[in-house]
Simulated assay, not measured.
Amino acid sequence: MPELIKLCALADIAEGTARGFAPEGGARDTMFVVRKDGQLHGYRNSCPHIPGAAMAWRKDAYLSHDGEYIVCAGHGARFAIGDGQCLFGACLGQSLTPVELTVKAGSIWASSQDSPPR
């Protein structure tokens, strides 16, 4: 059974923002969490157009200017926050890889099975 990995306190991600994490250690964020409309959405930090390519152009910059979409900085693809579906760009019809999240005791946790291998 996969264990849970603590990412941060729920209060550390404000409504309408995103934050990247490297739960397995290392300098590069391998997953990110978006808080939108009171819900949390977790995804691997990897664009389906070029697997392994980081989504953000700088630390925690995963969202469009208006906060309505997740954007790949590499080629501008836009993804729905709720389900990770590509709505515009080179990977149209593909999706981001979801990360299962749990909220308990005021903290956000990710399943270790969703964490990329070291």
Rank of each mutant, 00 (worst) to 15 (best):
G76R: 03
R44V: 15
G67E: 08
I81R: 00
R78H: 13
G82S: 13
R78T: 13
A73W: 06
D83H: 08
K59Y: 09
E68L: 14
G67A: 08
C72I: 10
E68C: 08
A54D: 05
A77I: 06
L87D: 05
V71W: 00
G89F: 01
G93D: 03
H75C: 13
P48T: 03
P48H: 11
Y43R: 11
G93P: 06
D83E: 08
G76Q: 03
G82L: 07
H65A: 14
P51D: 00
A61N: 11
W57I: 08
G82M: 07
A61T: 11
S95G: 04
Y62A: 09
R44T: 06
R44D: 00
H65S: 12
H65D: 12
D60E: 05
S46F: 02
F79C: 00
Y43K: 12
G89V: 02
A73C: 15
F88R: 15
A56H: 11
P51G: 02
H65W: 12
I50M: 13
K59L: 11
A61F: 08
I70R: 06
A56E: 15
R78E: 13
D66R: 10
K59T: 14
R78N: 10
D60K: 07
P48F: 07
G84E: 03
G74N: 11
G89M: 02
A80F: 09
S64V: 06
K59S: 07
A90D: 15
G93F: 08
R58S: 12
C72K: 05
G93H: 05
G82D: 14
G76F: 00
A54T: 14
N45I: 00
D66S: 12
D83I: 07
G52R: 08
F88S: 14
A80D: 15
A54N: 05
N45L: 01
G82H: 06
L87F: 04
I70A: 09
A73G: 15
I81N: 02
K59N: 11
A77D: 04
L92M: 13
N45M: 01
A77T: 05
A54I: 14
S64L: 09
